[in-house]
């Protein structure tokens, strides 16, 4: 009787453990997307020039019509419908990690295509690109410029978004030094002439 009790207890314990594992395995769902890069690696990719495409390079890619380079448009469908780069694929930012988008992105990835992400602003492109980089799409580059810059050649829009400092130190000096107020009012016109010259000192987004 005592012996039976012992074996009975043992089987109950084993069955209980087995149940815990089975239930655990059944309820555990592998998430659709996971981070493939640690934050440190993701951070190092931000300063990797090979992962950036500037406006000039993008225009060159469009001209060459390379089948291995695919443009991904992360703007909203309305903007995309109005106007977009030829052969670009529209995946709005908010749908970037949807099942259908992931399927498409993975198939492009398997075919060895390089994806160039562009958006309304470089900031929008950067968000989508960082998201893709961190979730394992290494073959992606971001357009370091806005969509509107691609069509036009004006530098005005470029200056609006670029990380080049546009601080007029001369205007600041006249402001902080003991100069009459009338001079301060002149600075706006002075500022405009100084900006282009300032550009060269600026470069070097990181070390």
């Amino acid at each position: 009787m005592n012996e039976l009790n012992k074996t009975l207890r043992l089987t109950i314990a084993v069955v209980a453990i087995a149940l815990v594992f089975v239930i655990g395995l059944l309820t555990f769902q592998k998430p659709e997307v996971e981070y493939k890069l640690t934050p440190d690696v993701a951070l190092s990719h931000l300063t990797d020039v090979n992962l950036m495409v500037n406006v000039e390079q993008a225009q060159e890619i469009i001209r060459q019509n390379d089948a291995n380079m695919i443009f991904i448009d992360v703007r909203n469908p309305i903007s995309f419908g109005r106007d977009h780069i030829e052969k670009a694929i529209n995946i709005p930012l908010r749908e970037l990690l949807d099942k259908s988008s992931l399927k498409l992105l993975r198939s492009l990835n398997e075919k060895g295509k390089t994806m160039v992400i562009y958006g309304e602003t470089p900031q929008q492109a950067s968000g989508a690109w960082m998201m893709l980089q961190q979730t394992g799409f290494q073959n992606t580059k971001m357009l370091n410029g806005s969509y509107t810059e691609l069509g036009s050649k004006s530098d005005k829009t470029a200056a609006m978004f670029s990380e080049t400092p546009m601080i007029d130190m001369e205007a600041l000096k006249t402001l902080t030094s003991a100069a009459p107020v009338t001079e301060v009012q002149n600075t706006p016109s002075a500022k405009k002439t100084v900006i282009p010259a300032k550009v060269e000192t600026s470069k070097g987004g990181g070390c």
């Binding site: 981070y35 934050p39 993701a42 951070l43 931000l46 470089p122 900031q123 950067s126 968000g127 960082m130 961190q134 370091n144 609006m160 978004f161 670029s162 990380e163 080049t164 400092p165 546009m166 600026s202 987004g205 990181g206």
Partner: peptide, 18 residues
Amino acid sequence: YSNADVTSDQAWIINKRL
């Protein structure tokens, strides 16, 4: 903040993830 808002936004995304 950075010069424009690309670099600063990248810093934000890294920290937001954490």
